[in-house]
Write a protein that binds this DNA or RNA. Structure first.
Length: 154
DNA sequence: GCCAACGTTGGC
DNA sequence: GCCAACGTTGGC
């Protein structure tokens, strides 16, 4: 099993939106970055655990836990000219972009803010904290996963 | 709103 | 293949 961190802007689609979705499940569509695409297409499996991260907001940080319930499959929003993330270069016979399905599990008892993650020496290696990192989909190591859950209990 | 960092595009 | 121009991300 793998661990991941998914970024989302709470003003656009936050943890509460996922919790309110039918079956508490949503397509993680609209990812238009090759590195993120590769993670979703090649490495995400059903059952993988996800930290739900709020970005571009007053208090960026990890706010909840979700689970991958469907592994990578073609992102059909790329084929539809009416969609915001339409990409004419993505051919249904040879899809350029992929998505996964994500199901809500729970909110953290309290948000673990970006600030707190940065202050934790054991988490320095986190991809999220690397300079200039803008990936919206990234792997989390098991050690990092456990360390962050331990922070929640403090 | 600002701006640094990064990814992508396209001319050459 | 190089690199300038441009668009986007996301913290602050």
């Amino acid at each position: 099993m793998n661990y991941w961190l998914l970024k989302s802007e709470p003003d656009v689609f936050g943890i509460d939106d996922l919790a309110k979705a039918p079956k508490k499940t949503e397509h993680w569509d609209g990812v238009r970055n090759y590195q993120a695409r590769n993670f979703m297409r090649d490495d995400m499996n059903k059952g993988d655990q996800v930290f739900f991260y709020h970005s571009n907001c007053a208090e960026p940080g990890i706010v909840g836990i979700a689970e991958i319930v469907r592994a990578g499959y073609p992102d059909h929003t790329a084929f539809d000219p009416k969609e915001k993330y339409f990409d004419p270069k993505s051919d249904p016979d040879k899809p350029r972009w992929y998505m996964v399905d994500v199901r809500y599990r729970r909110k953290l008892k309290r948000p673990i803010t970006l600030k707190e993650l940065k202050e934790n020496k054991g988490l320095k290696s986190m991809k999220l904290l690397q300079k200039g990192n803008r990936l919206s989909v990234m792997p989390v190591t098991e050690r990092e996963w456990r360390a962050i859950l331990a922070l929640e209990k403090r």
